[in-house]
Nucleic acid binder design. Sequence first.
DNA 1: GTCTATACTTCGATAGAC
DNA 2: GTCTATCGAAGTATAGAC
Lengths: 206, 206
Amino acid sequence: MASPRRIGAPDAKNRTVLLDAAEQLILDQGYAAVTSRKVAEYAGLKPQLVHYYFRSMDELLLEVFRRRAEHGLELQQQLMRTRQPLHALWEFSTDPAGARITMEFIALANHNPAIRAEVALYAERFRDIQIETLEKVLGTADIDPGRFPPGALAVLMTSVSRVVILEQALGVSGGHAEALELVRRELERVEGAPAQNDTSDTPQAT
Amino acid sequence: MASPRRIGAPDAKNRTVLLDAAEQLILDQGYAAVTSRKVAEYAGLKPQLVHYYFRSMDELLLEVFRRRAEHGLELQQQLMRTRQPLHALWEFSTDPAGARITMEFIALANHNPAIRAEVALYAERFRDIQIETLEKVLGTADIDPGRFPPGALAVLMTSVSRVVILEQALGVSGGHAEALELVRRELERVEGAPAQNDTSDTPQAT
DNA sequence: GTCTATACTTCGATAGAC
DNA sequence: GTCTATCGAAGTATAGAC
């Protein structure tokens, strides 16, 4: 029972331009600013084109999330295979743009069922990979898995990076130095001092 | 120079009704849903009344935040004086409604300077109290302050509670049980098994 | 002091032109 | 296959009536 309205090709150039514009808009002004008119302005296109390429604004938002999440997931899987996966994971999850946009989508998910389902799906996948990595790495390390199980540490790492980044954006810094130093020290305890580079590209979280 | 428009008295009954409505609306549908029409509908009043009691929608939002933050701050200070401040603090910071609304305001703060300043101010104050409490409590406990300084632990506690609550709302649960168990165990290590009740009221976080 | 009538802006969406 | 003209609903805000 879908709408009879025609929708533009998925690989059309302007469709990608619109997705990029929407993503940038979320970073600059938050999800609430993603209106057809503003997206079009960012993209340098006419507002009506947004509705030509996307059935609704929700669909556009969903597509932005999917694209970014899919990319982030691949990246995270690559990081798992580097020499220092935990250091890589930490660097990955402390990417400010990634954390910011993730928070926007989580806020959005709280009152948008379609977005929520998608965010939940990817969040579980990210977490699974993190836990898998931690299980491998901690097996050889001097960490008691009874006191610090991989699942708990995955949640801890994600939590601290997210909150610290968000607070930094606000200008809040109480306890940050101590928390970051704690993480740094524990990472080093498990994987040794960080090497220069594990991947060629700068990671982006989702 | 400010607008010559007249604004309703700060203690008028309907003003409070509107603030309550806006707060509930944020919980139900997120900050973006706080429009003059919807707030009025929730309050059972005419949309124009929102603009009579508040100079702008931003001012309404700011007022909602201030009221809640001020209340939460007082509550947190009370908890500090209970027999098991850390258990109380944890219960306080795992209040779902509190965490949800806080995240909405943080998301909002990212692109609203007035809200950002206010959120940052209160966040620092909350953190300061938490650190102060941890310093006292940890002094007598079997925790190495070199490895786990109060500031780091305050950030850790806040981070984990926020992220776990947010993820629970999404339906994500990977690693939660392990993380919560870890916190429970460490709290018990410091303060012993939790007593029935430290305060008479159910706390609400901000 | 309290509220309403009303102006004006921006929104999402679609039918139909190229 | 791509884009535009246009509509009706919803948004903020103010001047002025009670």
